[in-house]
Nucleic acid binder design. Structure first.
Length: 567
DNA sequence: CTAGGGTTAG
């Protein structure tokens, strides 16, 4: 079945490549053509993403001495940007005698779409500077919030440039700022111009925030507008609800769609996988209709769904089948997923073999997951080999040293523990700080690890001490191996209590009526100690705790988690 | 006059 689908895809691709280039062919061989001829030729290159045709078209314009004005030059920027030739796009933009919001937007989104958010932001700030000399003082700061203030004051703003910049913020992970920009757009009376694309972009920011309240509100807005069916919007709704913990809402949106693309299927499969529901992932995947071709994301969704749900053998069988029938769809992510699966089920040597024979360079993430598996299964030889690779690639990451020293500690090799700890102190730098947040009455409350500046710091500290006494009485044992620093045990216990997700859960306990569920989001993966903490808290205080980390959901009730302690 | 913003995964 998979093979047949692959053939059909190939046939479609060949068809596309053979399509004749009529507008380009219609250009005169030498001398200047007219505006409309160039426009048609460039448009065709944009639609076909055909750089090999687009470049000669541009070259002919130059050779003929034709100087494209604002509109056509902008189309050239788009053509190059869509083809990924960002340097050429930028050259055209820089060479334009006049630019406007459209030409800037084209280039900014070019960077954004080619995964260069830093350049996108840099150019955005440049645009603001060019936009108004008066506002230059604000724009000089490379600070996003300042940039946003300037954007708010810019004279030439419309719903499209708003959407572009909201999308830019979301790509940078600045979802709160993105939401703020949408509010501005609304307050400026542009709500009537909001269309499917605007809402699609906005929903992405809400997915990042995991803000169910806002998500539902925006969904309501969309329904009231009675917009025509728009695939990307529905797909974003599926994704938003699943990332906000409401898988059944995702499913309802999915079931009600008049048609579904492969992205819709991917979004719902990812949703079930994220919630650890591997059986449902398998069932859905089997029910995919013939005419929807699974792509590499589909296969990744299924593999990672199996992996998250602990369906080890099914995952391995699936991978074998893909290797046999659809190996062209495989990328490094798929291998990473399967290596993780092998590692976690204790097949460390097999995992290592796969790394050695896969057609990709192993990434730090792959080595990292294998090192974690070596800790769980206490495997010294593989652990040392993997650690050597990893310390070579990223000597600054403290986590790797900690895991290696944990492996030695588990095997009672204390001299090696000490050696690794010393090495760590010498080489490491601060990692990405942990951050958790929760939303209460539409207010986003953010907590950082070992929070020092939170306005309710004192209350939270007092409450967490109280909780600690209660849960220790109920059998909670702190897992000191989660601490990245070489300090004494008492200090380790204090540091563990400072983890941002514990602060957020504590804040949730003290600010919501008893018995109500608590939902917390985290930017990194949750640590074992915090997972235990949440489990015991759920039992002692009779609360359902939903914890969304970077990868997945943990729904914790009565002292047990839907992940089955496997994540 | 025309154009620019959008969906899953990483």
């Amino acid at each position: 079945m998979l093979a047949a689908r692959g053939l059909r895809r190939l046939a479609a691709a060949i068809c596309l490549a053979r399509r004749s280039s009529s507008a380009v062919a219609a250009l005169p061989a030498a001398g200047a053509a007219r505006f409309h001829d160039y426009d048609a030729a460039v448009t065709e290159c944009i639609e076909r993403r055909a750089l090999r045709v687009g470049r000669p078209v541009h070259a002919r314009m130059v050779a003929a001495g034709y100087r494209p004005a604002l509109y056509l030059a902008t189309r050239l920027v788009i053509m190059y940007a869509r083809c990924g030739a960002l340097g050429d796009a930028r050259n055209v933009l820089d060479g334009m005698p006049k630019r406007n919001v459209v030409s800037w937007t084209a280039m900014i989104s070019g960077y954004s779409q080619n995964e260069r958010p830093a350049e996108a932001l840099e150019l955005f700030i440049t645009m603001l500077r060019a936009g108004s000399a008066l506002l230059d003082m604000y724009a000089k700061s490379e600070n996003v919030q300042e940039a946003r203030r300037v954007f708010d004051m810019l004279p030439a703003r419309d719903v499209v440039s708003y959407t572009a910049i909201i999308s830019g913020y979301t790509h940078l992970g600045l979802d709160e700022e993105a939401l703020g920009l949408f509010r501005q757009l609304y307050n400026e009376g542009m709500q009537m111009q909001c269309n499917q694309v605007t809402f699609t972009t906005l929903l992405n920011a809400l997915s990042g925030l995991a803000s169910l309240d806002y998500g539902k509100q925006v969904h309501g807005l969309i329904l009231r507008k009675e917009l025509p069916f728009f695939m990307a919007l529905q797909n974003s709704l599926i994704d938003m609800y699943s990332k906000c913990g409401k898988l059944l809402y995702s499913r309802r949106v999915f079931d009600n769609m008049p048609e579904r693309s492969v992205v819709s299927w991917n979004a719902i499969l990812m949703g079930y996988g994220r919630h650890g529901l591997a059986r449902e992932v398998a069932q859905l995947f089997r029910s995919m209709p013939e005419e929807v071709n699974p792509d590499s994301v589909t296969l990744l969704a299924v593999l990672s769904g199996y992996s998250h749900g602990g369906l080890v053998d099914e995952g391995l069988d699936m991978f074998d089948l893909i290797v046999k029938e659809q190996s062209t769809l495989l990328n490094i992510e798929h291998y990473g997923c399967v290596i993780d699966l092998l590692g976690r089920s204790g097949r460390l040597q097999k995992a290592l073999n796969l790394i050695q024979k896969m057609p990709f360079e192993p990434t730090r993430a792959i080595w990292g997951s294998l090192l974690g598996a070596c800790r769980v299964h206490v495997n010294i030889p593989v652990g040392e080999l993997v650690a050597r690779k990893l310390l070579d690639i990223e000597p600054e990451n403290a986590g790797n040293y900690v895991i290696l020293s944990n492996i030695y500690a588990a095997a009672g090799m204390w001299k090696d523990v000490f050696r690794v700890r010393k090495l760590m102190l010498k080489n490491t730098v601060i990692k990405e700080p942990g951050r958790s947040w929760m939303i209460l009455d539409k207010v986003i409350h953010t907590f950082h690890s070992s929070e020092r500046f939170h306005p309710r710091k004192e209350d939270i500290n007092a409450k967490i001490k109280e909780i600690y006494i209660d849960i220790k009485a109920a059998g909670f044992i702190p897992d000191l191996s989660c601490v990245l620093h070489d300090v004494d045990d008492e200090q380790k216990e204090r540091m563990l209590l400072g983890h941002s997700e514990k602060l957020a859960i504590t804040f949730g306990l003290m600010s919501t009526p008893s018995g109500l569920p608590i939902q917390v989001m985290k930017n990194l993966r949750i640590c074992v100690d915090c997972h235990n903490f949440a489990k015991v808290v759920s039992k002692v205080y009779g609360r359902e705790i939903s914890l969304r980390d970077r990868n997945r959901f943990h729904l914790i009730t009565e002292g047990a988690c839907t992940c089955g302690d496997y994540w």
